[in-house]
Deep mutational scan, measured.
Amino acid sequence: HHGSGALAALHADGPHAGLPVTRSDARVLIFNDWEERKRSEPWLRLDMSDKAIFRRYPHLR
């Protein structure tokens, strides 16, 4: 199991509170979210491209 239990660094406060600090933090969040959702949506594709990251977390651009 590759990303399970990996912890992402999140901004503690300010405008980005609760959001990932780096792209690799964002990838951890996206992976964990996908892993949760694919139980009920097995067709869901995992997209951890930069484009997917920016779409979801525009502050990382």
Results as ranks from 00 to 15, higher is better:
14 G>D: 03
17 A>G: 04
51 K>A: 13
58 P>T: 02
46 L>W: 01
55 R>V: 12
40 S>Q: 13
11 H>P: 03
14 G>K: 03
12 A>E: 10
48 M>Q: 05
33 D>E: 14
31 F>A: 04
28 V>K: 12
60 L>M: 02
58 P>E: 02
27 R>H: 04
3 G>E: 10
30 I>Y: 02
8 A>W: 03
34 W>T: 15
34 W>L: 01
1 H>C: 14
18 G>T: 03
32 N>G: 06
9 A>L: 11
58 P>L: 01
48 M>V: 09
16 H>Q: 09
17 A>C: 09
51 K>S: 11
20 P>Q: 00
20 P>H: 01
45 R>W: 07
37 R>Q: 14
51 K>P: 14
19 L>Q: 06
34 W>H: 04
33 D>S: 06
16 H>M: 09
18 G>Y: 04
26 A>N: 00
4 S>L: 12
58 P>A: 02
33 D>W: 06
16 H>K: 05
60 L>K: 00
53 I>W: 01
5 G>L: 12
18 G>W: 04
5 G>Q: 15
55 R>K: 13
30 I>D: 00
43 W>Y: 09
54 F>K: 05
49 S>D: 03
10 L>Q: 13
9 A>T: 12
22 T>S: 09
40 S>N: 15
37 R>S: 05
47 D>W: 02
13 D>H: 08
13 D>N: 08
26 A>F: 01
29 L>P: 00
20 P>I: 15
33 D>K: 04
59 H>E: 01
51 K>L: 09
15 P>C: 07
13 D>R: 06
45 R>M: 09
6 A>S: 11
27 R>S: 04
26 A>H: 01
14 G>P: 05
53 I>S: 00
52 A>V: 07
43 W>P: 03
1 H>E: 12
46 L>K: 01
53 I>A: 00
19 L>Y: 04
11 H>K: 03
57 Y>R: 00
29 L>W: 02
52 A>Y: 09
43 W>I: 04
59 H>L: 00
12 A>W: 07
40 S>T: 13
61 R>D: 07
46 L>N: 01
18 G>I: 03
15 P>V: 07
32 N>T: 08
44 L>W: 05
26 A>S: 08
11 H>I: 07
1 H>G: 11
34 W>C: 01
31 F>C: 08
19 L>W: 04
26 A>Q: 00
43 W>A: 12
22 T>R: 06
38 K>R: 13
30 I>C: 03
21 V>F: 03
60 L>R: 00
11 H>E: 05
13 D>V: 08
56 R>C: 07
49 S>P: 00
59 H>T: 09
42 P>M: 08
30 I>T: 01
32 N>K: 12
48 M>S: 03
16 H>N: 09
31 F>H: 05
46 L>S: 01
2 H>N: 09
6 A>W: 13
46 L>G: 01
57 Y>D: 00
27 R>P: 00
34 W>F: 07
54 F>P: 01
25 D>E: 08
47 D>Q: 02
26 A>Y: 01
52 A>T: 15
25 D>Q: 05
4 S>P: 11
17 A>L: 08
37 R>E: 02
24 S>V: 08
51 K>G: 08
60 L>T: 00
4 S>F: 15
4 S>D: 13
1 H>V: 10
52 A>C: 08
51 K>F: 12
17 A>F: 08
1 H>K: 12
43 W>Q: 10
31 F>R: 09
59 H>Q: 01
43 W>F: 10
57 Y>V: 00
36 E>V: 10
49 S>R: 04
56 R>P: 02
49 S>Q: 02
9 A>E: 10
25 D>W: 03
29 L>I: 09
24 S>I: 08
59 H>D: 00
31 F>E: 04
36 E>Q: 12
32 N>F: 10
2 H>W: 12
61 R>G: 08
38 K>C: 13
32 N>S: 08
57 Y>E: 00
14 G>A: 04
6 A>V: 10
46 L>Y: 15
47 D>P: 00
3 G>N: 12
8 A>H: 10
3 G>M: 14
35 E>Q: 14
41 E>G: 02
21 V>S: 09
7 L>G: 11
27 R>E: 08
5 G>I: 13
60 L>Y: 01
25 D>I: 03
42 P>L: 03
49 S>F: 02
57 Y>L: 03
39 R>G: 09
6 A>H: 12
28 V>G: 05
45 R>P: 12
61 R>Y: 09
11 H>M: 03
46 L>H: 02
21 V>L: 14
7 L>K: 13
49 S>Y: 01
44 L>S: 09
35 E>M: 15
55 R>W: 07
41 E>N: 08
27 R>Y: 05
45 R>Q: 13
42 P>F: 04
4 S>A: 10
38 K>A: 14
32 N>C: 12
51 K>V: 14
3 G>R: 12
23 R>K: 15
52 A>R: 03
9 A>H: 14
52 A>L: 05
6 A>M: 14
13 D>E: 09
7 L>D: 10
43 W>N: 14
44 L>G: 03
57 Y>K: 00
45 R>G: 08
27 R>C: 12
17 A>W: 06
13 D>F: 08
8 A>L: 07
22 T>F: 02
23 R>I: 15
9 A>N: 14
53 I>E: 01
58 P>H: 02
48 M>R: 02
32 N>V: 08
54 F>L: 11
18 G>C: 05
4 S>G: 11
10 L>M: 06
26 A>D: 00
28 V>I: 15
12 A>R: 11
45 R>T: 12
30 I>F: 13
12 A>V: 12
29 L>G: 01
16 H>L: 14
46 L>F: 03
7 L>Q: 12
48 M>P: 08
6 A>C: 15
29 L>S: 02
56 R>N: 06
51 K>I: 11
50 D>K: 06
18 G>Q: 06
58 P>G: 01
20 P>C: 04
11 H>L: 06
14 G>R: 03
25 D>H: 04
